[in-house]
């Protein structure tokens, strides 16, 4: 009997990650640095021939309240979104969520009157 351990190595931080998260669903990004790889073509479906690294760019919130991570491929600029796993790095998640508020493009004083 052979035991197969399903792992992948993160292309950004080099961490060896188990391919299944704690909830049983399959991971598609590293839980430590949240980077991913462009292996799935979301437009046509099926495997993608890009294979480049995908950086997390923002946090999206579904109507159900679940968080999604929006990834962007560094090579072909494709955007994908994937659900947040339970053991994802919360510091990086929170940093991405508050990132727009650090440098707002308009003054925030006007919102105090609302």
């Amino acid at each position: 009997m052979t035991i197969t351990i399903d792992t992948f190595t993160c292309v950004w931080c080099g961490l060896t990650v188990h391919a299944h998260a704690a909830g049983g669903q399959r991971r598609n990004h590293c839980p430590s640095c949240l980077h991913s790889r462009h292996v799935h073509d979301h437009v046509e479906g099926g495997p993608s021939d890009c294979g480049a690294r995908m950086t997390p760019i923002s946090i999206a919130v579904l109507r159900t309240g679940d968080w999604m991570i929006v990834h962007r491929c560094v090579r072909c600029d494709e955007l994908t979104s994937s659900p947040v796993a339970e053991d994802d790095n919360r510091l990086i998640l929170m940093r991405m969520a508050v990132r727009p508020l650090a440098q707002p493009p308009f003054p925030l004083e006007a919102f105090g009157d609302l």
Binding site: I59, A60, V61, L62, T64, G65, D66, W67, V84, E86, D88, R90, L91, L93, M94, A97, V98, P100, L101, P104, F106, L108, A110, F111, L114
Partner: peptide
């Protein structure tokens, strides 16, 4: 600006994954 700010504040307003936002804070 109000619509943009509501969109930017959405992850902080309702923490979907239980405890992700609060745990991170």
């Amino acid at each position: 600006a109000l619509a943009l700010m509501r969109l930017a504040l959405r992850p902080l307003r309702d923490p979907g994954v239980p405890g992700v936002a609060h745990g991170a804070l």
